[in-house]
Each structure stands twice: as structure tokens, then as C-alpha cells.
Design a protein around this nucleic acid. Structure first.
Lengths: 194, 194
DNA sequence: CGACTATTTGACAAAAATAGTCGAATCGTG
DNA sequence: CACGATTCGACTATTTTTGTCAAATAGTCG
């Protein structure tokens, strides 16, 4: 029973996700989500209270996906230096694909939706936390030399944010790996103990 | 004066084209076209009488583009067999990119716009006409053996239409050139004089 | 079967978004 | 400065869209 219900919900979220990805929150209509789900519009309201609620579910799912991918990506690695590299690489490449989550983080227009604030704050905290752990680990193992791992984490997050625009929107295909290496190396030579 | 005016119009058409390409006719708003053009909405109405008129201009421009590309593509070639191959190849690849023109040709939803009918009819006629000429030329030079070049042209156009869906919408990257060659060859062995 | 719950839907009202109008302001140029 | 070209803000009428509700249907379990 519950399983059925949740499955139906999950299906709707999946479908809505695709439509939101293409048309964004505003331009996507309940009618479209419904007919793509082979349901009447009212049926969608049986599962969700509002369009906003669906969007929230979509965004949260994307955020979850990113988090999982980051975790499983770095958990396979032992060396903190490599971990940091992989973290940055995955985060930049994956975030680019999570359009709904990304616009949830960035769009001016969405700021008035209440849950957006939470998402943003949570994500920021999460990200700093994860990187702090990696750095702290690096310090413990004598690989990184920084005063305050938290501050370094914030710096790295800031750097990544700055890179989003050129990476996501530049017209020429960006040679991501190359550039990424440059940047990571640059960061590291201020960080790595010699 | 006129030059200025037409230039401004052309710029609007270009910008509108991009937006229409992404969001389609219905979901594109005049406000968006305007602000992307760095103008007020009313200013757009100074140049065009309606959204429909802009869309029409966009579609016509795309149709023009296709026509030109086809003409210049085959005009460089002498051999009718090659001409036909190139025609089919260009038409399939280019049409895929001309989203507005393509949806103008196909979309159920747009059928109620008056000018759409004209566009469709014109395009169909045009296409059959161009291919008929190529085939006729092939017959004259003793390369093709068909009773009625017009009927063959219609057949080829029909075949191309049938190929649109698999080519345009298939998820795996279609190895266009390979497939195209197969199909063209298939057509030809019913056509070419031996 | 038949009572009860879960699900679906169409018709509808209230709210929001949008196309298109108009008159006034501004710009540019002879 | 005078005149046409262009821009724009404020406005209205229309359409679209969200979200509600009550009724219909499907499904389940005693």
C-alpha cells in the first residue's frame, strides 16, 4: 500500500524532474506533469499539495544524488590529496547536470520560495563540512599544512563557486580535466606541506 | 533609416529564434523576447504586430536557411547520384537543427495558426520540386531509370519524413552517415540504371 | 457480496500571467 | 527647434494556470 503510493510519487518526481530540467519551475505546468505521468491533473494533487512541493522533492532528490556520488567517490580513496581532487572534480561535473538543484541554488527568481533558503544553507554547510573533514584528515596525516581547516574549506568552496560560471556556461567546450588540474594544483601549492 | 529599422528587426528575430528554440511558441513570452533584446515589451510591438508574426519571421528565416544550404550544397556537384545523396544528407542534418521550422511543420498544436498551413504546403512542394529536378537530370543523363520522376520524388520525400523520427529523437547517437548510406543505396538500387 | 479505503477525474473558481493597446516621453537629426 | 523614429510604462481584456471539491471508479479484505 505505502509502497505503491511511494512508488507512484517517485515516478511523478522523476517525470517532473525532466520537465523542470527543460522548462524550469515557472514554465512547467501541473497539466504537463500530469499528462506526462498519464494522469489527470487532479491526480497529481492527490500525491502533492502544490507545484512547489513537487519541485522541492525534485531538488532534494538531485541534492541527494550529488551527495551520494561525492561520498562514494571519495570513500574509495585513501590519500587526502586525491580525495580533494576527486571531490572538486565530481562536484563540478555533477552539479552541472543537476539543473534543478543548481537553479535552486542560484536563481534570483526562486528566492521567494521558502524552502529554497533552507536548501541553500544546508548545501553550503554540507559542502564546507565535507571539505573540512578531508583537509583535517590531510593535516593529521601530515600532508596539508594549514592553520584553520575550516577557513581553507570555505576558500575552496568559494573558488568552486567562482568556477561554476565559466565551466557551466562557456560556449567552447571547456577542457575540464586540464583546467581543473591547473586549479587544483594552484590551490594545493598553497596548501601542501613540503 | 530603413536599414536601421530592418537591422533592429533582424536582431529581434535572431534573439526570438533562440528563445523559441528552447521554449517553443507557446511558452515564449513577449516579455522574454523584449528583455533579451534589451527593450521594453511595447518596443517589440513597434516592430511586430504580434507574437505570431515574430514566430512566422523566425520560421521563414529557418526555412530560407535550409533552402540556401541545399542549393549551395548541390550546386557544387555535377553527378545527379551524388546530388541526391548530398540533398538527403543535408536536408536530414539541417532540419534537425531548425527546431522552430521543424515544429512548424509537424506540431499539431500549431495547426490553427493560419500561416502554418502555407508554410507546410510550400515546403512540401519545394522539396518535391527540387528532387524532381535532380531525378529528371539523372534520367536525361542516363543515370536513373524511372517512369515518372515526380512520383519517385514523392517517394523519396516520404522516405525522408519516415526517417525523421528515428534520426531526430533516438537516444543513442545515430551513426548518421552509415545509416544514411544504407538507405540511399537501397533507394538507388531501385532507381539506378544498370 | 458489500463496506471501506485508495485513487482518479472533470468541472469549477480564484488568482496569476500574458498579449496587445495607447499616449506620453525621449532620442536623433536636419 | 521641429519633426519623425523609437522607446516605454501603465493599463485592460483575455487566457492560462493553480488548486479545490465532490463524485466516480478501482481495489481490497472480511
Amino acid at each position: 500500500m505505502l509502497a505503491q503510493h511511494d512508488e507512484a510519487k517517485a515516478k511523478i518526481i522523476d517525470i517532473a524532474r525532466k520537465i523542470f530540467s527543460h522548462f524550469g519551475f515557472k514554465k512547467t505546468t501541473m497539466e504537463e506533469i500530469a499528462s506526462a505521468s498519464r494522469k489527470g491533473k487532479s491526480s497529481i494533487y492527490y500525491y502533492f499539495n502544490s507545484k512547489e512541493e513537487i519541485f522541492k522533492a525534485v531538488v532534494e532528490k538531485e541534492a541527494e544524488e550529488l551527495k551520494e556520488e561525492l561520498h562514494s567517490g571519495i570513500s574509495e580513496i585513501d590519500d587526502p590529496i586525491e580525495q580533494l581532487k576527486v571531490y572538486i572534480s565530481i562536484r563540478m561535473q555533477k552539479l552541472k547536470k543537476l539543473t534543478n538543484f543548481y537553479t535552486a541554488l542560484k536563481s534570483e527568481y526562486l528566492t521567494n520560495l521558502e524552502f529554497i533558503e533552507d536548501i541553500r544553507k544546508n548545501y553550503d554547510d554540507d559542502e564546507v563540512r565535507m571539505i573540512t573533514i578531508i583537509i583535517q584528515d590531510g593535516i593529521d596525516r601530515g600532508k596539508f599544512a594549514v592553520e584553520d581547516p575550516y577557513l581553507s574549506a570555505v576558500a575552496i568552496v568559494t573558488a568552486m563557486k567562482g568556477l561554476e560560471v565559466p565551466f557551466f556556461f562557456s560556449k567552447e567546450p571547456v577542457y575540464f580535466e586540464d583546467r581543473l588540474n591547473d586549479i587544483v594544483n594552484f590551490l594545493f601549492y598553497g596548501i601542501i606541506k613540503r
